[in-house]
Design a protein around this nucleic acid. Structure first.
Lengths: 147, 147
DNA sequence: TGTTTGTAATTAACACGTGAATTACATCTT
DNA sequence: AAGATGTAATTCACGTGTTAATTACAAACA
């Protein structure tokens, strides 16, 4: 319960940890001219199938205004498509296109190799343990037990 | 060594974890009209004393272009000051001002209360363990053992 | 001394993060 | 059916993330 100083606090540690991880993936994404967020959108749609914008935003951890822009860009590049939902003119179903799927397939081997290398360096057990602890943290805070 | 799916991967888990944590601090920062990044800059300068821009950027995990903008804004608001380093016209020492220190002092009780509440909900032991694992991950990846 | 090479900081361009306001529809209420 | 309320998505405004290019200065060296 000590006052957190910057060097050992969750906000800074989580930020730095994410940075060192993403640094490994960015060159791959840059070579294919897609952003980290666009990549998340594609992955989520590929895994979950067609989704409405709100659900997609939640699953990809992207805020609605950002998602609006991302969808626009990726529709133009033909990586995703949208279809109106009947009986509700507000909603639309977003789906990954064949080209989008192809991109994911293309990058899959490299993506897995990068991730495996990280896991190998870090250790499989620590890796699993870290994921568990993060999941638990997300759980304990997202259900809003107040500040 | 399984292919990471979006639901259990370090990039997503770290992102979500940081989001649920920061959600607790944002209202406080917003009330005082400073951003999360500006807050990091103030905290680092308060803890470490005057620093040059490069060192400050590293410690606060902010990229140089962002830091340039942040410094400009906070100089105007008189939260930080800069002094040229003699014998090198490129460098400047950045320091927190009395007003900046006052802001930190002001927010300190609330900041600590928020953090303590998180730690209480999550559990002190898990909290320590998580910080250790994050530190270890940062270590194992930042020394560039290649992709 | 003048030129090259290196380094710190800034600028530029574009995408995303964030909160507030707005628009477009649905639904509820009377 | 008409208006009030609610919800999904978008738009707006501004700050930050990211890479590449540029500027300003220092150091090496020919």
């Amino acid at each position: 319960m000590l006052p957190p100083n910057t060097r050992r606090s969750l906000p800074m540690a989580l930020l730095r940890a994410r940075e060192v991880i993403m640094a490994h993936f960015r060159p791959m994404l840059a070579r294919h001219d897609i952003t980290e967020q666009q990549w998340r959108v594609l992955r989520v749609l590929a895994e979950a199938g067609p989704l409405e914008a709100t659900e997609l935003a939640n699953r990809a951890s992207i805020l609605p205004p950002s998602l609006t822009r991302i969808i626009k860009a990726m529709e133009e590049r033909q990586f995703i498509s949208r279809d109106k939902v009947k009986n509700d003119g507000r909603r639309a179903l977003l789906a990954i296109s064949p080209a989008g799927l192809a991109l994911i397939e293309d990058l899959s081997p490299e993506r897995i190799a990068i991730y495996d290398a990280i896991e190998r360096r870090y250790g499989a057990e620590q890796h699993e343990h870290l994921l568990d602890l993060l999941e638990s943290l997300i759980q304990s805070e997202s259900s809003e037990n107040q500040t």
